[in-house]
């Protein structure tokens, strides 16, 4: 067992886990944050994607010790963070994925949405190629990706609109 100090979704947490457990196991089985999914446990599928200091990382390949002192965002933290910023509903990414029908089985989608969130944070008006590139580490077996692209584009538009409104 080893104790870790983590900051997950804005909460500072102290938690003990077996030493060989990955961040994915700690999130899912110690903290109950089961929104982060496991599809392969070896870095192939992207279902376990979380944001570490804003960058997409595979939780199944990270030991928790490596992210102590960093900010971890899981899918459960996305809508509350949006609310903290004064937003309504869920994060525009989540709303757009829902509106575009991109959430088929939904198993890959926490990872996909977080990769998309990181993309829009970095590049508010991504091209089609940029979207495809930044999601290429997240396998989706249901959608054929089209409705995912539509969702990311719609989220970008929605955020641009919110910004103009904010500027008014």
């Amino acid at each position: 067992m080893r104790a870790y100090r983590l900051e997950v979704n804005g909460d500072k947490i102290e938690i003990a886990a077996p030493e060989h457990w990955t961040l994915l196991e700690v999130l899912r089985y110690k903290l109950g944050l089961t929104g982060t999914k496991q599809g392969c446990d070896k870095g192939d599928c992207g279902a376990c994607t979380v944001l570490v200091d804003g960058e997409p990382e595979l939780a199944c390949l990270l030991l928790p010790g490596a992210v102590e002192g960093k900010k971890i965002l899981t899918i459960e933290g996305l809508a509350p963070a949006h609310r903290c910023r004064g937003g309504e509903g869920a994060d525009p990414i989540q709303e757009s994925f829902d509106e575009a029908g991109a959430l088929q089985c939904g198993f890959c989608q926490p990872g996909v949405m977080l990769s998309a969130r990181a993309l829009l944070n970095r590049e508010p008006h991504p091209s089609c190629e940029q979207i495809a590139d930044s999601l290429s580490g997240n396998l989706c077996r249901c959608t054929g990706y089209k409705q995912i692209y539509d969702a990311v584009e719609a989220a970008a538009d929605k955020e641009a609109e919110l910004k103009t409104q904010g500027a008014d």
Partner: peptide, 10 residues
């Protein structure tokens, strides 16, 4: 979808 938001939020 009726369950879309459940899936979107984890």
């Amino acid at each position: 979808k009726v369950d879309g938001m459940d899936k979107a939020t984890g």
